[in-house]
Amino acid sequence: MTAGAAVAAAEQNFRLLRAERARRSALALLLLGILFVLSAWVSELSPAKLAAGLPRIGDYAERTLPVLRLSHLGEDLAEWFWDLGHWLQLLAETVVMAYVATLLATLGALAGCFLAARGLTPSPLAALIIRRGFEFARAVPELVFALLFIYAFGLGAMAGVLAVALHSLGAQGKLFAEAAEAARRAPMEGVLAAGGNWLQAMRFGILPQVLPVFASFTLWRFEINVRNSAIIGFVGAGGIGEALYTAVRLLHYEDVSALLILLVLTVALIDQLCARLRHALIGRESAR
């Protein structure tokens, strides 16, 4: 075979491969397109409905904007944020709800994670049951738990706290158990060899290794729980969500924008604080 023929054969092969790939991409795109058209039909997403709906959204957004005149800025702002005291109290309640929920979930996850960790657990059966429990708690949205808990515990913040806590327990338990599984075994074996029991082996062999990771996860989860506590009020389970729900339902347009601004600011503030704390934690750990 001459060099020219070899090149021609290679090019032919390349063309075939490219054609095959193009065919497969086209097929995948076609499939995606069909799925999209079907789902757009099921979810009532039609150009006509969009054309009717989008102007109304613009209209809605316009109505949430307050009248702010430069000459009367103070009075206009005071009118926009007319219920500021009450709203700040609700925001504080939201953050406290997130704090208690995170605390409960962290305690539960701490108690369960060593039992659920593969290779550390004294009982594989208990590990399996606890892991399934964490999975269930993680898979059910907190709003669904809230709907159930409102019936059992009555309207108010307690149902919301427990709902956020239960969902959070599922997420934190899984992360904690995985971190414990990844810890080095030598310190644990050392404690066992010195005559310590299982609890002591976990406390002095594993916990010191994973504590910074746990703290960092917990701070991160607290940020998420602040967001979740803010929406849990939509079903009547306490926090700023109740005020937001009322404002949207009763068409108090300017209240909606005021509440959203307060909420976004609070969430950003909490995120900043937690990020600082996390960096301080990690910094101290790496300096050691």
Partner: peptide, 28 residues
């Protein structure tokens, strides 16, 4: 950041008010 900063459920609540009950508000 602002688009992401407001929770999906809050957008849904507002869109239900703006375009009416139904899945369209959820999609939006």
């Amino acid at each position: 950041d602002v688009l992401r900063g407001v929770d999906q459920l809050i957008w849904a609540l507002i869109f239900v008010r703006a375009v009416g009950l139904g899945p369209l508000a959820g999609v939006l």
